[in-house]
């Protein structure tokens, strides 16, 4: 566990204490019982180790606040998450949109029947509309069709998209979107390729 992570958990514990003083969002006794029960019932299978049931600091805050922590705490913890984002050393945030499209299609990775260490997919189409050629897309997240065309392929936007994919929780603490870079699901090159898929004027997303 790195130092930043530790800090973020400490902050989360403090935040949890603050929430406890506020009106309870979830029934804490049922929650406690559910936790005890799940710790007893889940076992490791494949790469999905039993300890995945335990919450990290951010998850704990979101779970205890019904995904709506008090604004002040949310802002502070979002800042902690943002601090975890590692930008490429070469300063280039755009990769190859074709590789990005391939990656966006794949929903593999991290389940108990995925081979440990096998590369994870971006899972993007599971939840987002992206390129118009793919009609089988999910609607859990917003449509990203024409994203670059609408927002512009600026340096600022590249940084935004990169950091959003790296750690979505740095913008919205209890976002439904995974923290792909933070948990090591996607590496630097892969995130660059996804940035290109969304922002490159040549990408079908922006045609």
């Amino acid at each position: 566990m790195n130092k930043r992570h530790q800090f973020s958990i400490l902050a989360a514990i403090a935040a949890t204490a603050a929430i406890a003083a506020a009106p309870a969002f979830a029934d804490s006794s049922h929650r406690a019982k559910a936790m005890t029960m799940m710790k007893a019932d889940f076992t490791t299978k494949g790469q999905a180790t039993a300890d995945r049931i335990y919450e990290d600091g951010l998850q704990a805050v979101c779970n205890r606040s019904g995904n709506h922590p008090p604004e002040k705490i949310a802002k502070q913890l979002e800042g902690d998450q943002m601090a975890t984002v590692k930008y490429p050393a070469d300063g280039k945030l755009m990769g190859d949109w074709k590789a990005g499209e391939k990656l966006a299609q794949s929903g593999r990775g991290f389940t108990w029947n995925d081979a440990p260490g096998s590369p994870a997919g971006g899972n993007c189409y599971n939840c987002h509309q992206i390129a118009p050629s793919e009609s089988s897309f999910g609607t859990v997240g917003p449509s990203l069709f024409n994203f670059g065309k609408l927002r512009g392929n600026t340096a600022e936007n590249q940084k935004y998209v990169y950091s959003k994919i790296y750690n979505a929780k740095s913008y919205n603490l209890c976002s439904e979107m995974p923290r792909f870079g933070h948990v090591g699901a996607l590496g630097e090159k892969q995130i660059k390729d996804l940035v290109a898929l969304l922002l490159d004027p040549e990408s079908p997303v922006n045609k």
Binding site: H30, K33, A34, Q59, R179
Partner: peptide, 17 residues
């Protein structure tokens, strides 16, 4: 009520519940 909490519980690498 406990089941409702299980359905709410976000954890794991992708923060999913």
């Amino acid at each position: 009520e406990i089941g409702k909490e299980v359905a709410n519980h976000r954890a794991g690498p992708y923060d999913f519940s």
